[in-house]
Computed example of a mutant assay.
Amino acid sequence: MLPRLLLAHRLLAGAAAPLPRRRTAAAMSAAAPGTRLLRGVVFDMDGTLTVPVIDFPAMYREVLGGDEAYAAARAAGGGSVDILHCIEGWAPDEQRRAYEVIARFEQDGLDCLQIMPGASELCGFLDAKQIRRGLITRNVKTAVDLFHQRFGMMFSPALSREFRPYKPDPAPLLHICSTWNIPPNEVVMVGDSLKDDVVCGKRAGAFTCLLDETGRYGPHDSLPEDVRPDFKVSSLSEVFSVLEEHFDLAPVVSESRI
C-alpha cells in the first residue's frame, strides 16, 4: 500500500515521467476511432450508478443553519456548495452535528436506493471486454457496501469519503490508477458532477464523461474549458457508444504501464 501511495504522491507532484498529452473533446471527434487505449473506467456512485434520491439543498440548509447561510455558501462557491469542504474548519462539536445531519439524509437515501438504468448492462459490457471498474464517491463506506450487496456488482477499488483527500482532488483517482498499474490517460472517469467528477478526472489526466440526464448543464460546447468533459451523455446507455467509437478497448495486461 505504501509504495502505491508514494506513487500517487509522485504523480500529484509531477515527479513521474510525463504522460502522453490528451486530446481536447473537439480534437477527439476528428481523430480516427480506436486510437486511444482504454483499460479502466471509474464511476461516481450517487446520481451515476444509482438514481439520485437525496435532497441535497434541504441537507445543505439544515447543516448550514437555514436559507440565508445556504445562499451565502452558494454565492461563495460560484453557485454550488461543497458541504464537506464547508465544515472542515468547524469546531469538533459543530462538525459532529453536521455529520449527523448528513448521515441522516444519506440513510434516507439508502432506504430507497435504486440502480441507474443501464448500469448493470454497462458493467457486463466492461467485464466482457476485461476493462477494470472502479468507484469513487463522497458518500460513506456503508453506502458503498450496501450498493455492492444489493445490486451484486463489485467495483475495485471502491473509495468512499473515508479516503482523503476526496473529489475533486485527483488523489483518489490516481490511487486507483496506481493500484491497477494503469496510467490515467488509459482511464475514463464517469460522473454526474462537473465540479467533483469531471474536475477530479481532468486534474488526474484521465478522460472524462459527464452524465447529464436532465440537461441541467446545457450544451457541451457551452461549458467552461476548465470543466468541459471530453464526452457528455444523457444516459449510461450512451456510454457504450462513446467507448466503442472513441477507444481501443484493450484488456488489462499484467505488467505495469506507469
Rank of each mutant, 00 (worst) to 15 (best):
P165T: 10
V101Q: 01
V144H: 05
V253E: 15
I83Q: 06
V144Q: 06
T48N: 01
G118I: 07
V63S: 07
G77Y: 05
R228K: 14
G89A: 08
G109Y: 00
K167P: 05
P224H: 11
R161H: 07
E88R: 11
V81S: 03
P168C: 04
L194N: 09
T35G: 09
I54T: 08
T214Y: 13
R74V: 01
V81A: 02
R39L: 12
F105V: 03
L126D: 09
G218D: 06
A119M: 10
F151M: 14
D192Y: 00
Y99P: 12
P157H: 06
L194M: 06
R39T: 05
M1Q: 13
R22I: 12
I136G: 01
S222W: 09
P165A: 07
A25I: 04
L84F: 11
H9F: 12
D111T: 05
L223I: 15
P184E: 06
D82E: 00
M189W: 01
M189V: 06
A71H: 08
P172A: 00
A98W: 03
D226M: 08
T24E: 11
A103Y: 11
L122F: 02
A8C: 08
H246G: 01
I258G: 11
R216D: 15
T142G: 09
L174E: 00
S222C: 10
L7K: 11
H85A: 14
L249W: 14
C177G: 11
Y60N: 15
V188G: 04
K129F: 15
G65D: 08
D55A: 05
V233A: 06
V101K: 07
S120G: 14
D46C: 09
V41N: 07
G118S: 04
H9I: 11
A91Y: 02
G191M: 03
G14P: 06
V63T: 10
V253A: 14
E225L: 14
F155P: 07
A98Y: 01
R21A: 12
T24Y: 02
D44E: 01
A76K: 12
L174A: 00
C209G: 04
D111E: 10
H220C: 11
H175C: 02
V187K: 02
M28E: 15
P183V: 08
E186L: 12
P168L: 02
N181P: 07
S193I: 08
D108S: 04
P172V: 03
L38V: 08
P18F: 10
H246T: 05
P183W: 08
D55I: 10
P157W: 12
R138H: 09
T24P: 12
R257L: 15
P170Y: 03
R228L: 13
R150Q: 14
I102L: 06
V144T: 12
G218W: 13
D127P: 13
K195W: 04
V242E: 03
R164V: 05
L223V: 09
T137G: 09
N181D: 14
R74L: 09
L135Y: 10
G65W: 05
A75P: 08
F207K: 06
G218L: 07
E88I: 11
Y166Q: 04
A71W: 09
E213K: 14
N181K: 15
H246M: 12
L122C: 15
A103P: 10
M59A: 00
A30C: 12
P157N: 03
D46T: 05
E245K: 06
R203F: 02
E255N: 13
M28W: 05
A69L: 01
V227Q: 11
V144R: 03
R74P: 00
D169P: 05
